[in-house]
Nucleic acid binder design. Sequence first.
DNA 1: GCGACGATCATCT
DNA 2: GATGATCGTCGCG
Length: 209
Amino acid sequence: MGQGHKLSKEYYCNEDVVALAADLLGKELFTCIEGSLCSGIIVETEAYKGPEDLGSHAYGGRRTARNETMYAEGGVIYMYVCYGIHDMLNVVTGPEASSHAILIRAARPVQGLEQMRERRMLFNDDKRLCKGPGSLAKAFGLNKAHDKLPLSGDLVWIEERTELVKPGDIVRAPRVGLNIIEPYRSVPWRFYLRDCPFVSARNRRAEQG
DNA sequence: GCGACGATCATCT
DNA sequence: GATGATCGTCGCG
């Protein structure tokens, strides 16, 4: 299994979802689904900041059957279906009812490459296995049925790593694919590792160091 | 490498 | 009935 240890409950309960989104870079995501262990280093995330964020499903305190999990205490995953086709993996953060979440957009595969290739039906380009949120969830075997699973369990979790990500390695940029008005269209709440070939490049807009 | 486009359906109005 | 936190494919050059 992993050599590190799982991130703690307290880690996920941090109220600063934007800082957490940056901090998740370099951590190792694991799933053990249908008996096969897969893992990868998180290289791209986006923060969705509670009721104030026009880009969030929880904007304005909106609470429906779909997004109910966003209101849970930090440390569970929020899964939903996008465009009727793709499942998205989010990490719920903050205290109960704060409705913060972090979309995990890309990872560098580490363990379970064969299983990932099989799930993605992609056998000749490992850089693309977990590139983009829909691809990542599929490679890790996650779908809407896994909504609300705790990150303290044995099906999906995230581990600390000893290697540090230096602040200079992190790029801040506007989030991808949001058809919303300013200022939340351009607020730089997407984070990814500079020059990393596993990061999704689609819809890239103006970037900051 | 990049832009355009269509697929496809849970969810909400 | 309209929408969308996307992706793979195609054409281009």
